[in-house]
Each structure stands twice: as C-alpha cells, then as structure tokens.
Nucleic acid binder design. Structure first.
Lengths: 127, 127
DNA sequence: CGGTATCCTCTACGATACTG
DNA sequence: CAGTATCGTAGAGGATACCG
C-alpha cells in the first residue's frame, strides 16, 4: 500500500493575480524521501501513538494517559490523520457508556522497525 | 555522547501566582523515548540535513538548494540547533568571498541507521 | 557567500467547558 | 467515555531586504 508511486517534483510556484501573491508550496511534496517520511511519522505524537498500539488495541483515554501530556484534542486529531492514512483503525465497542478502541493496521506495523531503531538510538545516547 | 542519562519524569506542573496561571510543560521531557527521539530528529529539516551531509561536508547555500524549498533562515536555524546538540560541525574556510561548510559529527553519524530505515520505509511504501 | 533583521501570517497546540 | 466547540497564545516559518 502506498500513497503515490513516483517521486514527486519540487513544486514551488508563484502566481500573481492582481495584487494578491499566492505561493504554492506543498510541504508533502519534498524531493527527499527522508523528508517525506518525516512528514508522516515525525509529527508530534504519531510515533508514540503507533508504538503504544503495537501490543494490541488501546482505548482513547488510556492512550491519552500513556502519552502523558497530550491533550484529548491533540490525540484525537492525530488519530484521525493516522486513520485516514491507514496507519490505525478505529473500533466502536457497543457498551454503556460507549467505548472506542484504536488498533494498529498492517501498514502501521510496517513503521515499527523504524520506530524501534529510533527508540534504541534515543536510549543508547541518553536522549 | 548523550544529553542526559536517566529517563526524565513527566513534568506537568501548574502553579498559580495571584491571577496568573503558568503551566510548565517542557516538550522535551517526555516519558516515551520515541517521543524524545522525535524531538531531536523529527524537526522539519533535520533528518534531511543529516542525510545530505553523510557523504562529506557541504556548503551552506548548496545545502539549502539540496533541501529544495527550505529558506536560508530555516536552514540556518536548524544548523545552529544541530550544532549545539553536537550533530553537525561548522567550518569556516578562509576564502574570498567567505565559504562555510558543514559536516556531520560522529554523534550525527549515529543517527544514519535510523534515517536509512526511514528512507527505506518511505520508498517501499511510496511515500 | 553566508548569513541577519524585520515583518507578518498561519496554524499548532493548550485550556476550558460542554454533550450524547 | 469519547469526543466537540470555542478561545487564546506562542512560535513556526515564509518573504523581503540588507550587510560584511
């Protein structure tokens, strides 16, 4: 699964319409694949979320607690982003009160190597 | 080389002084090492910079061109951050006009595994 | 060439309160 | 419980101009 299959070009276009200057510079269309990868995983809580889901589904509030410091709003936003990308899945459990669990997809699992390396690196260097 | 050797605690402290509410929440003091690692490497251009320096010193303007879309200001900021952390080194070449080259340190090289994994992942999944 | 300085916009993110 | 709504601020980051 992928988002697009070709290396996208740098897209820096400047158009003038009357006095209005509009610059189109899509931050995801980067020439360097590392940069593009970082745009997906490098967000503020994304790596951690993925990591905390690796051992099984986790419920929303539990997740926010695990992240220690992230507001519900932020976690919600990141989860939605990651759901549309296909990194995580959302499951509604029919209970009262309602419960929602998030799980990692196969695509999400494909990032765990990278994250593990990052974790190892961080720990080895006392980050 | 490391920044600190122990896992820092969550530091979320709320203090009231009169009417003023001040919340201390240092973004670098995260319980999850992945999150902390991301704070170092996950910044907007840091991974790419490191990657482009891996084959030898690169001059400032060349670097900005390689990054394709980053302003001089941004590159400058990132480089300074990364210099103080010890990821890169700055060398002034005595020429006219002046030339400055940046190189990767040993500590910087220690990140290349992670970045390589990220690159591979991104390319395999068409990111 | 390798930056600084200035200005300005936009959005990331936190706090807080509310809802089905 | 799992969000949504609203508001507010700090800072990220771009444009532009200037300098030794």
């Amino acid at each position: 699964m992928g988002l697009n299959s070709e290396t996208p070009p740098i897209h820096t276009e400047t158009s003038f319409s009357g006095r209005t200057k509009k610059i189109v510079r899509d931050p995801c269309l980067q020439p360097c694949s590392i940069e593009r990868g970082m745009r997906i995983l490098g967000g503020k809580w994304k790596g951690s979320i993925l990591w905390h889901l690796k051992d099984g589904p986790v419920r929303f509030n539990d997740l926010t607690r695990m992240l220690g410091g992230a507001s519900k709003k932020m976690v919600d936003q990141r989860l939605k982003e990651m759901e549309t990308i296909g990194l995580v899945e959302r499951h509604v459990l029919q209970t009262r009160p309602i419960a929602v669990a998030y799980s990692i997809t196969d695509f999400g699992k494909s990032t765990l190597n990278v994250l593990e390396q990052l974790k190892t690196w961080a720990e080895q260097h006392g980050i």
